[in-house]
Design a protein around this nucleic acid. Sequence first.
DNA 1: TAACCCATGTAACGGGTTACATGATTTT
DNA 2: AAAATCATGTAACCCGTTACATGGGTTA
Lengths: 190, 190
Amino acid sequence: MISYLKRVEIMKKINKSRYAILGLLLDKPRSGYEIKQFMLEFTIHFWQESDASIYPMLKTLEVEENVTSKSEFVGRRERTIFEITEAGKNEFLQWLVLPAEEGTRRNEYLLKLFFSANATKEDVIQQLQLRQKSIEESEVRFRNIAENVLSKVSDENDRKLFWTLTLNNGIMHVKAEERWLADCLKMLKK
Amino acid sequence: MISYLKRVEIMKKINKSRYAILGLLLDKPRSGYEIKQFMLEFTIHFWQESDASIYPMLKTLEVEENVTSKSEFVGRRERTIFEITEAGKNEFLQWLVLPAEEGTRRNEYLLKLFFSANATKEDVIQQLQLRQKSIEESEVRFRNIAENVLSKVSDENDRKLFWTLTLNNGIMHVKAEERWLADCLKMLKK
DNA sequence: TAACCCATGTAACGGGTTACATGATTTT
DNA sequence: AAAATCATGTAACCCGTTACATGGGTTA
């Protein structure tokens, strides 16, 4: 229980998976599997966790008494539902108002482009087109979230507003990338 | 020497620091320290390496015979200069034409915003303004690269062109982020 | 002569993913 | 009856950073 605050003092760099998970549990009780699914639908463009992070972290949070668990049946299927405690809520809220830290920026695509004086023009153009395709896919995914997913979310206490804002962020950056790609292709074909 | 290709088969996810370093050495021979400095100036917005990656990786690359090293004096100061070998060049070029992999997207700032229904309006606005400040700093940094750094680079074989394109990418995204932040503040103040 | 770069490195630690494993239930 | 999905988990492994350490050279 105690060890967490101690870790913060000593280490500086702490695991943020915990906050992503606590935040979703503050919205409502969920199973590990539901957390995974939710992230795939809503937060994929700015936050993701793998199974191998979620399940162990839920156990850790339970030991720390930040969440409690209970067994529940959906039809005949059993699953473990986790609920946030007051302690967990407090820890989450403390994190929420802290200034966000910037993560390491690593973009392999730009790294390749940076070195592309060593490639043929054809190879560079092919890479750019691959990138265009992957960006288009993101755009489709975003439109899908906007039309099919977010439209079904109820707007208690501005929750939907903030979900929309993060989605908009993704859309803006995708559009910026598209414009930039078009510019690049224009310059290369000269 | 051998082990590298074997690792690729088995593991799938391999270290990309090697390519960033090989790419810079293909440009010209450099010391570890110069590699670090160069990245801080030119690639900071899409690629970074810490000392604790660069120096050990240079040693690994030397064992693999992808680079060779020699001692050099700058004034009285000694440093180890690394030069890429034909083998190293080949490995780099093979990577260069491969499709770029997308890294994990993790943006703590957006994660907080996503959960901001649990914060006060004042806290949210403060976070947005912090973000604005950090984005402005990026913009200044980019302008500095464009005006003071890139202007001094000679344009052998399109090198400068590609360096400019990656810089433009940063600029486009910074502008997109600024517009989005302005939109957010507008929506929140309603 | 103190402060600050230059220059190179290592140990320790936590982070996070892939791959593997299991078994039940529902759908086709 | 097979395939897909639900649901949960572990082991192994690499990744990458922080913190620490060292010592010489240069500048104010």
